[in-house]
Design a protein around this nucleic acid. Structure first.
Lengths: 209, 209
DNA sequence: CATGTTCGATACACTCACGTATCGGATACG
DNA sequence: CGTATCCGATACGTGAGTGTATCGAACATG
């Protein structure tokens, strides 16, 4: 039945490759048209397959979305790991620390659209809601210690709940990215709302040790 | 051709009524399932009509959305007008001023979902993007003077661009509403991120005159 | 009361996406 | 070199949503 003796090497490799291609295509198509408006055939076409490939690898469009989100979350965390560990060693002025947030590039246009879609779906589907909250939790776990350490290196400490501080910074950053995208600009514009307000907010929620 | 001599009174009134019912239904259905996933028949069914009523009153689903957004924006501005003019007369402590923001109740669950959908669609459709920006502009025009006056009445002035201040407050407020909704709570929870952070932010962007 | 018009309901044809069942080429293996 | 298996392509049937064309009831009007 589930014969998997010989083909473990080559065959499985190509299978994984088509899966990746389908996920890549799904990311692009979902970001472009939105999840609900996207068609399984849209995704397959973009990936250069027919629907046969899809049904051979996934059950439903929903499963495709879930796997895509999982993969993207892993990617994002990897990027955070790299950028944060690098930033932790620097001892630059506060404004530069804030700039580091931009260098993390958490959102490109596609990433933002996908994330916005996730938020929207999470409003309706409790299952996605918990996935969303788990993803945010993971991000906070990464970024919270970074913020605290960066402040401590400058003789500062948080005066509010770290979670509140993170959520506030994230909210402003996200609003900034959104505004830039809707205005047609680049998502991580350094002349943006975030560039002006994030340093002020950081100072507002911290005090000398 | 466009005979409209006698029926101006009663007939048109009932026509407008079915239009309103369709718009009400559209607001509920779009918020519940999302615009793309919603069906014209869904909307008609919710309104208690068949599709005949829809095609007699609208051309496309897109037109329905645009008219819905127009109507909702008018409603929101009316609510702001009432609440703001009332709040302007009061001379309460700052925390209470912030609480007034909650009393404006800009977002219920449906309102938030609809707005999130609009943001999402605006990312793709330039036409909706300008509509979105116009709506925000109108809100800022209402709320900016209110904020400045409320601060002035307490001997404070803004130390940043008023637009930045407004956008920041809005971002945090929206993040707070979203978080409450996804967690399954009430949208305007007074124990929320916004309740804790908004006063701090207001102080951070203002100084004694 | 008769007539015309308006507007929502009904019926129908059509398209599109879906899911399944089957096929064929490529690859691993004896 | 023959054979089995895997996996994507192809070819259906099906259901749902759309838009149009037509119908009929309610109401206004003379």
């Amino acid at each position: 039945m589930k014969g998997e003796s010989g083909s473990v090497g080559t065959l499985k490799r190509s299978r994984l490759a088509t899966r990746e291609r389908l996920l890549d295509a799904a990311g692009a198509v979902f970001a472009e048209r939105g999840f609900a408006a996207s068609t399984i055939e849209d995704v397959c076409e973009r990936a250069g397959f027919t629907r046969g490939a899809f049904y051979s690898n996934f059950e439903t469009k929903d499963e495709l979305l879930v796997q895509l989100l999982d993969r993207e979350e892993v990617k994002l965390l990897e990027r955070f790991n790299a950028a944060v560990s690098q930033a932790l060693q620097a001892t630059e002025p506060l404004a530069v620390v804030v700039e580091r947030i931009y260098d993390l590039q958490p959102f490109g246009a596609d990433n933002y659209a996908l994330r916005a879609e996730l938020v929207f779906l999470a409003l309706k589907d409790p299952k996605l809601a918990t996935a969303y909250q788990a993803a945010r939790e993971a991000l906070r776990a990464k970024f919270g210690p970074f913020l605290i350490a960066a402040l401590a290196a400058r003789g500062l400490r948080l005066t509010v709940d770290p979670i509140d501080a993170l959520d506030t910074l994230e909210a402003v950053f996200e609003a900034s990215v959104r505004s830039s995208l809707i205005a047609g600009g680049s998502p991580n514009d350094r002349g943006s709302l975030a560039a002006r307000m994030l340093p002020i907010i950081v100072l507002a929620v911290s005090a000398p040790i």
